[in-house]
Amino acid sequence: MNPFTYSSATAVEDAVRDNASHEGAAYIGGGTNILDLMKENVARPTHLVGLNKLPLTAIEPTPEGGLRLGALATNADTAWNEEVKRRYPLLNQAILAGASPQLRNMATNGGNLMQRTRCYYFYDTATPCNKREPGSGCGAIGGFNRIHAILGASEQCIATHPSDMCIALAALAATVRVSGPNGERAIPFEDFHRLPGNTPERDNNLEPGELITGLDLPAKGFEKNFSYLKLRDRNSYAFALVSVAAALELDGDTITDARLALGGVAHKPWRDQEAENLLKGQPATPETFARAAAKVVESAQGYGSNNFKIELARRAIVRALKQAAEGSQHASDVFLNSNP
């Protein structure tokens, strides 16, 4: 860990200005990821801008009838917010499926979007990694890649984005609000994270110095028919091997609207609109679900230790859609419902 300076901002403009005025500065929210990366010498910020005093912890209605989640609200406060539980139980379930209570108490919504991959090689400076050190090679391709991507990977990088929360946000089509040296902008969730391509060092489309200020959820919350299904190596405190956020709107047995996003399979939360289109207007049957699942994994590719994810993802999609159609999952303080 290198020496660094620290300041704590109380206003968004100050935070952005402070960040811009230090070469190599970084923001710090809950610190549950960036501190680990600093200890491992993977992140070497010269200056940290503390965000926890920013007035961005509120969770409140938007004029459009949706809900705005402050970037500095903790993951725990967000999951247990009454409006989130009532209107966006899919988000509640996804957050509670992640990390541990202690981590969720510290982790912020902005930090969750920005958390970096858990690729073993990325964390270990003794091994090559194009994401950490562009051009050094990828240790995971041809190495131990059990937790790596099967969709949208590149020859440079096969890392996954590790978040659970973001999978629900992708399915719900949230909008990311940011503020930066060049002012404010809103980024549709699908355009926020990137595929690795030839620039695996870039996880997302945030410009240098930009600060996430909030997340806007649209009015539609799929509160009746949803499922967040997470498959992992232990029942808590483990990242998803494969996770599925499924949300349906039903008219009788007919699917009128559908959302489908996967975690643990790609460099970004993997929403598949083509598969969603295969669901819409169709009866909510196992056959329909299987067609959508087949579509999602159509272009999937394994890299050795993660080959199993292709079949696992296919099965998980079918199960999640089935659970969503049954309306068997509910918001709760304990993540139990969809734990297979």
């Binding site: 270990d124 003794a126 091994t127 041809g142 059990r146």
Partner: peptide, 13 residues
């Protein structure tokens, strides 16, 4: 898990 490319345990945390 040992990655034999590097002769190094990779899940060391």
């Amino acid at each position: 898990v040992m990655d034999h490319q590097f002769g190094r345990y990779m899940n060391h945390n």
